[in-house]
């Protein structure tokens, strides 16, 4: 019975993640079209809603090309390395509290409830950079290699700030368990959410969001791709489903990062002014909060130009890291005072 419940949960959560990723590709194109006063895809299905499906079919039917000089094994491994960690991290995200569907007690609506959930997410999302680096290196093309190199340097420098800011939340909540972090914030009063902790919360939220942008290789930090300089960056030589896997990975990573931001700073599934809300309301609240961050990902992408590489490094090491450290210190002081 527990196995069955786990199976249902897994298919629900992974199905949800993949559907979100697919919807994101459509939303990306629709919102960018809106911002640029265009209409966007509207031919497949009513209003273009089936566009991701058509894209998927197209990706599968395309020819797969492996460059002559490529390291075949690693070339094939890289897209998997990029997509799998991003999909795995969703396992620890709590989507809703106690869940009962048709009399079946599902418990917490997350796949696993690890004590070190946050550590798990950070460790795995750190792994996803290997896909980019290996893909860039194995393609045997200078543009790919440059893209991979940039990605590695960028991700390492922003990972630090990301972890430091996450640690701030750990210090505030006193736990690395994502469920615990949510429950501490779930008091019915939205002011208990971490983002409303004076100064620390706001600085933390802004730093964390910017760091997730860099971590998921999104604009304005998408140096791994950087079309005008590097053709396509790390995925220049990739085609067909391998290319699609990179993008699936990117969109899954975005989704997970948006979920994580919600959990850490916006109280996860806690509903404002309703402490013991039914699971459906909690899930809806969680999705609404996450959608805001997903929208922010797209919104920022179509607003800002790309940074220069040295500016990115300056910002990461000379601005973000000191602020993140100071914020962590401040959080320590705050906790010892209250």
């Amino acid at each position: 019975m527990t196995f069955l419940i786990l199976l249902i949960k897994a298919s629900l959560i992974y199905g949800g993640l993949l559907v979100t990723a697919a919807v994101m590709t459509l939303a990306e194109r629709k919102i960018s079209a809106r911002i640029q006063l265009r209409i966007g895809p509207n031919r497949v299905g009513p209003g273009g809603v089936l566009q991701p499906l058509a894209d998927g079919v197209k990706f599968i039917l395309k020819e797969e090309i492996t460059p002559d000089g490529a390291n075949k094994g690693i070339f094939r491994l890289a897209p998997i390395m990029a997509a799998v960690p991003a999909m795995l991290t969703v396992a620890v995200i709590p989507f809703a509290g106690e869940t009962v569907i048709f009399g079946l007690d599902f418990g917490l609506l997350s796949l696993t409830d690890l004590d070190i959930g946050l550590l798990f997410v950070l460790a795995l999302s750190g792994l996803s950079v290997y896909g980019v680096i290996l893909g860039g290196w194995a393609s045997n093309s200078k543009y790919s290699l440059l893209g991979g190199l940039r990605a590695s340097a960028q991700m390492v420098s922003y990972e630090l700030s990301l972890i430091m800011t996450a640690l701030t939340v750990v210090a505030l909540s006193g736990s690395m368990d994502l469920r615990e972090i949510v429950e501490v914030q779930n008091t019915g009063n939205p002011l208990a959410w971490n983002c409303f902790t004076p100064v620390i919360g706001q600085v933390g939220l802004i730093l964390f969001v910017i760091a997730t942008f860099a971590e998921t290789n999104r604009h304005p930090f998408d140096f791994a791709e950087c079309e005008p300089e590097l053709v396509g960056g790390f995925h220049t030589e990739y085609s067909s489903m391998k290319f699609a896997l990179f993008f699936l990975g990117e969109y899954c990573a975005m989704t997970v990062m948006a979920c994580l931001t919600t959990v850490l700073f916006l109280g996860g599934y806690s509903v404002p002014f309703w402490e013991d809300a039914p699971w459906m309301v909690e899930l809806a609240t969680f999705m609404a909060k996450t959608s805001f961050f997903l929208f922010l990902f797209i919104w920022v992408r179509w607003t800002l130009p790309r940074f220069r590489y040295d500016q990115l490094m300056n910002l990461g090491w000379k601005v973000f890291l000191p602020i993140a450290l100071a914020n962590l210190l401040l959080a320590g002081a705050f906790i010892s005072l209250t």
Binding site: L37, R38, I39, W299, V300
Partner: peptide
């Protein structure tokens, strides 16, 4: 820097509700 980014975001957000120029 951040306030200017917010200003840019507001501009793009307003653009989303302007009439679209595409001809089908």
């Amino acid at each position: 820097y951040l306030p200017e980014i917010v200003r840019g975001l507001v501009i793009t957000f307003k653009k989303m509700f302007e009439p679209r120029v595409t001809r089908q």
